[in-house]
Design a protein around this nucleic acid. Structure first.
Length: 1032
RNA sequence: GGGCGAAUAGCUCAGUUGGUUAGAGCGCUACUCUUACAAAGUAGAUGUCGGGGGUUCGAGUCCCUCUUCGCCCACCA
């Protein structure tokens, strides 16, 4: 530790200081929180980052905002707990590891087997978890690291099994058929978010299915159209709308309504649609009506190629306004058809093997791949005369994000959680204000999504995750199944509440086991029960996060004290997936909401307005920013950007490791593994480097200029503090009697009180940017630019020195406290220095000394509202504008900074008194001297004039004048003033304005007009005088 | 298709309940190494507040509409 202020370097060395401070905080247990009845708890659980990869700036933002709250509440005397951890992220992590396995060893997961693959994923997890935690630490996140959790660790696993068992016993877990997105290449189901759509050129095949028993006058075939002809082998019906005429009427009415309100531009397109509809009415409708009647009669069709009989049915899914008006129904291979199948109780005929070839249900086509089957089916249909027409058509085809192959909808068994009751609880919690979502508008999406109460498919055909704890056994009959159930219900474990049973139609017995209990599992396996292979959706364990991390289902002291947590801070895209599910699981398991408030923060976008993601290659490692700008700059920069409405756009650059040149990241270069510097021509690697050759190159960091503001701010604070420290020699602690306080002291204390109040208020409402801006402006524009500058002459004056020292130390003290949650490192470092030189910095008798040697544990300041003094602030503003006026004239006249400027101020006597006191500051702030001030102060012969509302500043230009510059400036000013006066006069001459606007607004306008007139006459006078001096 | 949000200086963004001539940072220009800080200081230039209507004495701000962009949800025989 440096003891002499003079030895403090003029840059904060965050590279060595930050790790030192982190160690100190940690070794003093500053991040730890434990149940403490003396204190109010404040709790946040981290949104656990996925162990798929390292954190990017979006995470940095999320975690910075959390740490700011945590540190702020800690200073407010709350028992402030931040629980860290990571998420196993089922599909995503397994896919990453599988892809590497394929790339590096050319193996699939089946080559390795379940156990061995899971082992590999654990290794991956260990590596990335360590990296993620390290990133968080370097950002200064003050998590209680002792409590670090992982969604697959034993504590979370226990919570998961207990929850699953509870839901099972309540009858809210069931198994049903569901269409999944099947990746035939990887032979796994993928979630909706892992599917991307790509428009490809395809065809629309119109097929003709013969009607078996049509009566005379009835059509003897139905035409259907499809983009996937091979699926016709799995058709189990053809549907037609039950009331095609009515349906068409509705569509037409809708179109007419649109047309009525349409702009001229949209009209033609709508009119065309209407025409087509009319034609359709003429050409197709009679046929459709007949078909609908036939369907109601129970007519059968013959499915070509398969030679099966399938029914013609009525279902509103068949839209008369589309295609042929009839639609083939393939329940096992199309989501909508599946719904129709359920409604109409159609058979579900699966024609696919998991590997994407056709199965025995496809008859002669069994064994073919989908592509081959398609060709053959089309060819056969054509030769047999069932193909009516082939259209070219662009199709939006679903592809798997993993394998890039087309997705096949595939009917699979799936576990579900019944959502009706759970969703209702979660809706009530938000509607009744037990959980408050900020900004409020996000509550809408939450409620809309929950109100659908769609059952939650929780099974995943994966190996990485919580394996479902259900053992199942098929029986031959209902009777034998029930007998087995009764037998199991006589086991002691049943009475002990450790197992539960359910029967799936027709006679499959499921046994759910609560704990990881080997004897029970052994018993079940002996009875030939087989464990379900599926693992749970990763969101299932995430949904328990706020209570599982606190030890639930054990009634731990932590759970009792810290639950419900205080605030959840997250990003808007997981409000439904995660936030809603945490609410309902918290209510179900603990009987209380998981958090009181949810703050949804903006998203960080790249320079092109796209979200940051690994796959796009536009992610930025916060460590790159920390290395270049420091952790405080990262944090302050992010807080500075966190406004309520705007996402954050962040153009980034590569930093050449050879010459430090910055190369803008473009859509072209953002995925390259290697880049050649535009300046020095040397090559460097990026985060995408995979090959040994690329990895051997130096890595170029990705940085953004947007953190410069923050870095500069930290530097400013550091140096201002250095100044204070260097000038505290002989510091004597003690209160300052108000009689000793001068204008500038009262002013800075007034500003400080406002700042304290405003920052506290901003943080309370999650207005981070506002807090950051207030702190920035106070520290820089008020404290540094004015108070510190004005302290300089006073420090040299023995009469004032002690008072100034105390106010300086006190103001810095409070500022550091207010800044600490945002920029913890630099403030703590300064605090440590300050403690050595001026350990006691209060200027009030009533305040007890701060007992804390560490800023991180110091007390959050209270705003001394009695210090706020508007009159003082007005006076001070007048002073600063006089300074500004003199500086302005100096710049305009090109007077060298060394040269003294003299000036006179015409103003009220009160103000003259004030300005007289400020004499020394004109010298130190503007190298100027106020010759006279007062109502009748004599004016210098040759002068420049600046009007300031309540005063007129006249700068003596004798000897230094650039008369022409002054004349042209005054001419311009005059022109401007004339314009403004004109506009004001117009306004005041407007009878409506004078009579309708509030009196104070009118009065203000009158004052302002008066003022402008005064300025105008002064300018005219100065101009005349300048002209005459030139002899013009 | 439904919902939400955004559009303000060259760039990135503020702008509280409508009320003088719309702000900040970066960048730009000029001048300063003045003993805390050149990552600084002083001064300066830069705007059809996306377009069009409307309400109002008065609109960046409120209403309608259009355009563009982003996000979420749904759907696409």
């Amino acid at each position: 530790m440096i003891s002499k202020a003079e030895e403090i370097p003029n840059r904060f060395d965050f590279a060595t200081e930050a790790p030192r401070l982190l160690d100190a905080w940690e070794s003093h247990g500053c991040f730890q929180a434990d149940p403490n009845p003396q204190k109010t708890p404040f709790t946040i659980v981290i949104p656990p980052p996925n162990v798929t990869g390292a954190l990017h700036l979006g995470h940095a933002l999320n975690n910075t905002l959390q740490d700011i709250l945590i540190r702020w509440h800690r200073m407010q005397g709350h028992e402030s707990l931040w629980i860290p951890g990571t998420d196993h992220a089922g599909i995503a992590t397994q896919a990453v590891v599988e892809r590497r396995l394929k790339e590096l060893e050319n193996k699939t997961r089946h080559d390795l087997g379940r156990e061995s693959l899971v082992q590999r994923i654990w290794e991956w997890k260990d590596q990335y978890e360590a990296r993620i935690l390290q990133q968080l630490k370097r950002m200064g996140c003050s998590c209680d690291w002792r409590r670090t959790r992982f969604t697959l660790d034993p504590m979370c696993a226990r919570a998961v099994r207990t929850t699953f068992f509870d839901l099972f016993r309540k009858g809210w877990i069931y198994r049903g058929k569901r269409l999944v997105n099947w990746d035939t290449f990887l032979q796994t189901a993928v979630s909706d978010d892992e599917v991307f759509h790509e428009t490809i050129k395809g065809h629309f095949w119109h097929l003709r299915y013969p009607i078996l028993d049509s009566r005379p006058g009835d059509p003897d075939f139905a035409v259907v159209a499809t983009t996937r002809p091979e699926t016709m082998l799995g058709d189990t019906a053809v549907a037609v709308h039950p009331e095609p005429a009515k349906a068409l009427d509705l569509v037409e009415a809708d179109l007419q309504a649109k047309l009525a309100g349409a702009s001229a531009k949209d009209r033609p397109a709508l009119e065309l649609q209407l025409q087509e509809l009319q034609q359709r009415r003429e050409n197709l409708l009679p046929n459709l009506i007949k078909l609908a009647d036939m369907a109601k009669r129970g007519v059968q069709l013959r499915l070509p190629l398969a030679n099966r009989e399938i029914p013609l049915i009525c279902d509103p899914w068949a839209k008369p306004e589309l295609g042929s008006g009839c639609v083939k129904i393939t329940p096992a291979h199309d989501p909508n058809d599946y719904e129709v199948g359920l409604r109409c109780q159609l058979p579900m005929l699966n024609i696919l093997h998991p590997n994407g070839t056709l199965n025995e249900n496809a008859g002669a086509y069994a064994g073919l791949t989908i592509a081959k089957a398609r060709n053959k089916v089309v060819a056969d249909l054509e030769t047999q005369g069932f193909l009516v027409q082939v259209e070219d058509r662009e199709i939006d085809l679903a592809h798997s994000d993993r394998s890039k192959t087309p997705i096949e909808p595939y009917l699979a068994d799936q576990w579900f959680v019944r959502m009706d009751r759970l969703a209702q609880m979660a809706m009530d919690a938000v509607e009744r204000g037990r959980v408050k979502i900020v900004p409020e508008r996000y509550a809408r999406g939450y409620l809309d999504w929950l109100s659908e109460k769609r059952d939650w498919p929780v099974g995943r055909q994966l190996w990485w995750g919580h394996q479902i704890s259900i053992w199942s056994k098929p029986f031959n009959s209902r009777e034998s199944c029930e007998a087995a159930q009764h037998a199991i219900e006589r086991w002691p474990e049943f009475a002990q509440g450790k197992i539960a049973c359910s029967i799936e139609e027709p006679h499959l017995l499921h046994v759910c086991v609560r704990d990881e209990d080997e004897p029970i599992q052994g018993k079940l396996e002996k009875e030939e029960f087989v464990r379900q292979e599926d693992v749970l959706d990763t969101w299932f364990s995430s949904a328990l996060w706020p209570h599982s991390t606190l030890g639930w289902p054990e009634p731990t002291p932590e759970l009792k004290y810290f639950y419900p947590t205080s605030t959840l801070i997250t990003s808007r895209d997981i409000i439904t997936l995660w936030v809603a599910r945490m609410v309902l699981m918290g209510l179900n398991n603990v009987g209380e909401v998981p958090f009181r408030e949810v703050f949804i923060h903006p998203k960080i976008l790249d320079g092109f307005g796209e979200t940051m993601s690994k796959s796009k290659g536009n992610g930025v490692d916060p460590i790159d920013i920390i290395d270049r700008f420091g952790p405080d700059a990262l944090r302050f920069g992010l807080a500075w950007l966190t406004t309520e409405t705007q996402d954050v756009r962040m153009p980034v650059q590569y930093e050449c490791p050879h010459c430090q040149a910055l190369i803008a990241q473009s859509k072209e270069n953002r995925q390259l593994a290697r880049i050649h510097c535009e300046k020095c021509g040397e090559a460097f690697s990026t985060q995408w480097a995979e090959s040994e050759e690329d990895k051997a190159l130096l890595r170029g960091a990705v940085v953004s200029e947007r953190f410069e503001v923050a870095r500069n701010f930290c530097n400013k604070l550091w140096n201002a503090s250095r100044f204070v420290l260097m000038n505290l020699e002989g510091f004597q602690a003690g209160s300052v009697p108000s009689s000793d306080l001068r204008l500038e002291d009262r002013w800075i204390l007034s500003r400080l009180a406002s700042l304290t109040r405003n920052v506290t208020e901003s943080l309370r409402h999650y207005r981070y940017a506002e807090a950051a801006r207030e702190l920035y402006e106070f520290s820089w524009d008020q404290f540094c630019s004015y108070y510190v500058e004005m302290a300089k002459p006073r420090l040299a004056n023995p009469e004032h020195r002690a008072t100034v020292q105390r106010v300086l130390a006190h103001t810095l003290d409070v500022t550091l406290r207010l800044l600490h949650p945002v920029i913890p490192f630099v403030t703590e470092a300064i605090w440590q220095h300050l403690n050595q030189i001026a350990p006691q910095r209060s200027i009030r008798e009533s305040e007890s000394p701060e007992p804390e040697p560490w800023l991180i544990r110091a007390t959050w300041p209270t705003a001394h509202l009695q210090d706020i003094d508007e009159a003082i602030e007005r006076q001070f503003a007048m002073f600063t504008s006089v300074v500004g006026a003199v500086r302005e004239v100096r710049a305009r006249q090109g007077v060298a900074p060394r040269e003294l400027i003299r000036f006179v101020v015409q103003c009220s006597d009160d103000m003259a008194m004030l300005l007289k006191d400020m004499g020394p500051f004109f010298s130190s702030l503007a190298n100027a001297q106020c010759l006279e001030a007062g109502q009748h102060a004599p004016l210098p012969a040759l002068r420049a004039h600046v009007a300031l509302g309540q005063a007129d500043v006249f700068v003596d230009l004798s000897g230094l004048v650039d008369v022409d510059a002054e004349i042209s400036r005054n001419e311009k000013l005059l022109e401007n003033l004339t314009k403004q006066i004109q506009s004001k006069q117009n306004k005041l001459n407007n009878e409506n304005f004078v009579s309708r606007a509030p009196a104070d607004v009118v009065a203000k306008e009158r004052d302002s007009l008066h003022e402008l007139a005064h300025q105008k006459s002064a300018a005219e006078e100065v101009l005349a005088q300048l002209r005459s001096s030139k002899g013009v």
